[in-house]
Design a protein around this nucleic acid. Structure first.
Lengths: 159, 159
DNA sequence: AAATTATATTGAATATAATTCATTAATACC
DNA sequence: GGTATTAATGAATTATATTCAATATAATTT
């Protein structure tokens, strides 16, 4: 895709991204103050970053424990269909408790991250959804005992 | 911790969380309109959710490809120190390119998610940081070829 | 159950911010 | 070097955030 390659971000864009990644609810006025620019100019920049899909979403990170979602698991899956965006991954991605679906190199084909209440609800999801997806040959589940760090923030260069 | 257990979220809180998780830059006025409440009341609620650490952060999800951060890897590590928040995990968590550090059940002790530009920069991080952490016995790295889904959004019940 | 206390919500007022758009400035392109 | 394109400013308007006293609601105590 040319559109992906063409994205050129200057110092100002990176600065905006850094501030917004840290606090998405920063006001446009505060952004303008930080960057020493007019608010209207910042607004233009931000809109463009959204349009270009550089900024994909503004989201609140919610404490999973507050919602009693204490089970986190990584599931490795072998599937018989070839590489690329297979049916299996698309079906997996539809499940709301599935937070990540990756196609990985090596023996196991897919890596799936799932967050649920407990092991019982994980089992329920695996039975009700995974078993309905054809081509899945085997799964290997790794349960997380404790999470020390969990964020998606990128390292954003100064320039 | 009692503070974690004591958190009680009502229908209104959950509704706020749902809207904010979907769009963290929603205006307080729009939140109020959606919930049929006064803006001042909503503001109170949101502040409390922040104080109680239910809302942990507002963040912009940035397209990694826009910053040429195209390498994603999961690294399984065996360490000689016992379970719990070991030194190794704390050191790993400090590395900005490290997005996740989990302590997992089973043979491998830690699961680490790392995002970098390319395999060369991953190697650089592993050499410069990982090797300096004592107690790491071995590592096994899984490279992601393609990501189909990646988000941290929780399934928030209606009530 | 009434009285008391604590908690949450409202509504109005004020301060601050978002947004628009015409003008000016800066850049890129022939 | 002149023209076209893109970006930034500043002022005006509209909308929003925030505060706070008053009121309502819920919880607790006796």
């Amino acid at each position: 895709m040319i559109s992906e390659t063409e994205i050129i971000l200057d110092k100002t864009d990176l600065h905006i991204l850094r501030l917004m990644q840290e606090n998405a609810r920063i006001s446009n006025a505060d952004l303008a103050r930080e960057l020493g620019m007019a608010p209207s100019g910042i607004l233009e920049r931000v809109k463009k970053l959204e349009q270009k899909n550089v900024i994909q979403q503004y989201t609140a990170r919610i404490n999973p424990a507050a919602l009693q979602q204490n089970l986190l698991a990584f599931i490795f899956m072998k599937a018989s269909d070839g590489p690329g965006s297979s049916n299996a991954t698309i079906e997996l991605a539809k499940i709301p408790e599935v937070q990540e679906v990756h196609h990985v190199a090596g023996d196991d084909c897919y890596l799936v991250k799932v967050r649920t209440y407990d092991s019982a609800s994980l089992m329920r999801i695996m039975r009700s959804h995974f078993s309905k997806i054809p081509n899945i040959l085997s799964t290997r589940t790794t349960i997380v005992l404790e999470t020390v760090k969990e964020q998606q923030q990128l390292v954003i260069p100064q320039k």
